[in-house]
Amino acid sequence: MSIMMMSLLLKLVFPAPPSLLINAFSVVCLLSSPNLGLSEKRGKQHLQYSKFWNSISQKSASTQTTTELPSRTGMLILYVPAFLAPLMSLVLFPHEDIRVILLSSALAIHFFKRAFEVLFVHKYSGGMVLDSVIRISSGYFLATTSMIYGQHLTQGLAEPAVDLKYYGVVLFLIGITGNFYHHYILSQLRRNGEKEYKIPKGGLFGHVICPHYLFEIIGFLGFSFISQTLHAFSIATGAIFYLLGRSCATRRWYISKFEDFPQDVEALIPYVF
């Protein structure tokens, strides 16, 4: 079985690049992902943002001194560096391999969409801890630049036997569209000035409480299919574990806050999980 899986893997991905940094980053992603997902599932949020953090931040304010930014400012800092990295790649290296161009374009669109939502879609009810903003922003920037660099290292190598890049484009488009649609639904739950949370309805919210996470996972799978590098697959794996855990924590939070939360609404995958 292991030989068959290895043979299939070799048909789907480029060989590991001659880069100690990229290979080490891939291993770290794969090894740390399950623990990060379990930590999120158990409610041990290390990144200190969103409603989970805002709901407990006041309780800990008296025992811990933190620097907070307005949520809109903090979230822009999260995404703008990761948007500029692939944009600069496209501007400075316009004649790269088609996979580099497709991956850089998809990443630029992904983070542009996120920045657009920060400015024009999302509603805010709290702040963001500066330390967490720096860590998350650095993580996004590192993941983005390392995926592009890892893709650059594949130029001149034989293509994988199974070409997935255009399937990846389709997955990316489905993911980014579904994610934006459900973010828009969430933004419409509150009228101007309202801060209380509500049970979301519409789209796939009748089946799962985190359809925006589901489509984000589809988008990350799109990146990995476009790239077909072990590094891109390791980052997608990290995103999947993290969002699995986070969706479980989100469902548990809604159940704790709303007595009328529908019990048949799953966390992430309709009728399954």
Rank of each mutant, 00 (worst) to 15 (best):
G43E: 02
S60K: 12
P70Y: 04
Q263W: 04
L69W: 13
L244Q: 11
S60C: 01
A24C: 10
L20E: 13
V27A: 14
L102Y: 00
T144V: 11
G245I: 13
A267I: 12
S125H: 11
L243W: 07
G206N: 13
L268F: 09
R114L: 04
P81V: 07
P18S: 13
I269F: 12
F180H: 14
A106Q: 05
L119T: 06
Y184W: 15
E68Y: 10
K59H: 07
E216C: 06
V265W: 05
C29W: 03
I185T: 11
D97W: 09
P18E: 14
P200A: 08
N179S: 15
V118W: 01
L186T: 04
F205V: 12
G126H: 02
R252C: 08
L20D: 07
P262T: 09
L142V: 15
P262V: 10
H46S: 15
A85F: 06
P15R: 06
Y166R: 00
E117K: 05
Q188I: 08
H212G: 08
L31M: 10
L78T: 03
G203E: 10
V100C: 11
T237G: 07
L221C: 15
P17G: 04
I226P: 00
L171V: 07
F172Y: 13
L87Q: 04
S224R: 05
F93I: 10
H182M: 14
E196Q: 15
F141T: 15
F172R: 09
G127P: 09
H110L: 01
E96K: 12
L78G: 02
L36H: 03
G178K: 01
E194G: 06
S138R: 07
S104Y: 02
G37H: 01
Q64A: 10
K113G: 05
L164E: 05
S89T: 12
S32D: 01
I176Y: 09
A143E: 08
L69I: 08
